[in-house]
């Protein structure tokens, strides 16, 4: 009996999906920066984050992949959409940058990219004898609450301070406006 795996080898499917995810991530990234309309930018950012979440699956971590979807697509993009929708005139930023600025930015980023790739090609990474393969969420949770406990608590504190600060700053704007 023939199965699909006889015609299309699974490794080929895996590779195809990987490059599809790369395409999704990169086209989303381009869409996140090039159009002048901000809502399009946010949608492009969501698409790009979706692609990167898929790539995290290939890097062996389902947990981080799900967190990427939850935090970036679910929280950050929605926060942007809220901020845009709640203050209608913010969408007015939809004018094209000048050609001069565009060319300068393009040159700067292309030069940075070439320098980075040169550096990556020149580097020698020492391969490990036995790479760690303990990917369970249980281990991750234990490490977060033992070795990285201080960082973990600091991130929580940072989030609380950031959210209280956000409320304070927004209220500051209101009281100035009323004067």
């Amino acid at each position: 009996m023939n199965t699909i795996a006889d015609f299309i080898p699974p490794i080929l499917v895996a590779q195809g999906i990987f490059w599809l995810l790369v395409l999704i991530a990169l086209s989303g990234a381009v869409m996140a920066v090039v159009p002048a309309k901000i809502v399009h930018n946010v949608l492009g950012l969501a698409q790009s984050m979706f692609g990167v979440a898929g790539i995290y699956l290939y890097l062996g971590s389902q947990f981080v992949s799900m967190m990427q979807l939850l935090i970036y697509v679910g929280a950050i993009c929605v926060t942007y959409i809220f901020a845009i929708m709640l203050s209608p005139p913010m969408e007015l930023g939809g004018e094209k940058p000048t050609l001069f600025k565009l060319i300068l930015a393009l040159i700067a980023s292309v030069v940075t990219f070439i320098a980075l790739v040169q550096m990556l090609l020149g580097a020698q990474w020492a391969p490990l004898a036995a790479p760690g393969r303990d990917w369970t969420i249980k281990t991750l949770g234990q490490v977060l609450l033992t070795r990285y406990f201080l960082v973990f608590e600091l991130i929580s504190l940072l989030l609380v301070v950031a959210i209280i600060g956000a409320i304070m700053i927004t209220n500051l704007g209101v009281s100035r406006e009323r004067k």
Binding site: L104, A105, S109
Partner: peptide
């Protein structure tokens, strides 16, 4: 690196 540079391009332009 590509994501970084696309982001940098957007930040500048």
């Amino acid at each position: 690196a590509l994501l970084f540079c696309i982001g940098m391009f957007g930040l500048l332009q």
